Simulated scan of single mutants.
Amino acid sequence: MAIQITSRQLFIDGEWREPVLKKWIPVINPATEEIVGDIPAATAEDVEIAVDAARRAFSWNEGKYWASTSGPFRAKFLHAISSMILERKSELAKLEVVDTGKPLDEAASDMDGVASCFKYYAELAEALDAKQKAPVSIPVQSFKTYDLKEPIGVVALITPWNYPLLMAAWKIAPALAAGCTAILKPSELASV
């Protein structure tokens, strides 16, 4: 499978950016040991920029707070991601093969799992608003206690090399469904 990876950039604040120090890491196809492209070598400065952007997105985005949007609103995005994953399944599976060295049929199966994960959390998000505030039974009758479910803010997510897109989905989908924003740090060994 002769795929060349075009140079990647960091996706921060809704746009593609070069890393601050303009350094890159080669992407090596583990099956052939060929360099097939490169990825940005993000540094602490890049992380700061990303965290600041995620904080802004959490608290203010196009006139709305992401954290205060409804579960059904967030679910629309998660359903769209699921659909796009399935639309690009073949392309994504091939990239996963070049990135990780796994067999194509396994990578294709992983893409089904990625789409299913986003769909699952979209469905949970659709029902989330009704469960935001739930009474908690306690033995003292004169007190009322509630369990309030709300987003916590920016979450930092780190994924390993062996199931890069699937494990990213396992982390990103629930964070977005809950109303959090996220910073994803994939493995430098498999981050395409």
Rank of each mutant, 00 (worst) to 15 (best):
S7D: 14
S7N: 13
R8L: 15
I12E: 07
E15L: 07
R17K: 13
R17G: 02
I25E: 06
P26R: 07
V27I: 05
V27M: 02
N29L: 01
A31H: 02
T32F: 11
T32E: 12
I35V: 15
I35S: 01
I39Q: 09
A41I: 02
A42G: 14
D46A: 08
D46H: 11
D46E: 10
A50Q: 11
A53G: 07
A54P: 10
A54Y: 07
R55W: 12
R56C: 01
F58V: 01
S59K: 05
E62K: 13
E62P: 02
K64W: 05
Y65L: 12
Y65K: 12
W66P: 00
S70R: 04
S70H: 04
S70C: 01
P72D: 08
F73I: 11
F73Y: 15
R74S: 04
R74H: 03
K76G: 10
L78M: 13
I81M: 10
M84G: 02
M84I: 00
L86S: 15
K89R: 15
V97N: 06
V98D: 01
D99C: 07
T100Q: 08
P103K: 12
L104T: 02
L104S: 07
L104C: 06
D105G: 00
D105H: 12
A107K: 04
S109Q: 11
S109I: 07
D112R: 11
G113W: 09
G113E: 09
G113D: 09
V114F: 07
A115N: 02
C117S: 13
F118P: 07
F118I: 10
Y121G: 04
A122H: 02
A122S: 09
E123M: 11
L128S: 15
L128R: 10
K131W: 09
K133T: 13
A134W: 00
P135F: 07
S137D: 11
Q141I: 15
S142V: 04
K144D: 13
K144M: 09
Y146H: 14
D147G: 08
P151N: 05
I152G: 04
G153R: 10
V155D: 01
A156Y: 11
P160I: 06
N162W: 00
Y163C: 02
M167S: 03
M167G: 05
A169E: 02
L176D: 11
A177E: 11
A177V: 14
I183L: 15
L184F: 01
P186M: 03
P186E: 03
A190N: 00
V192P: 00
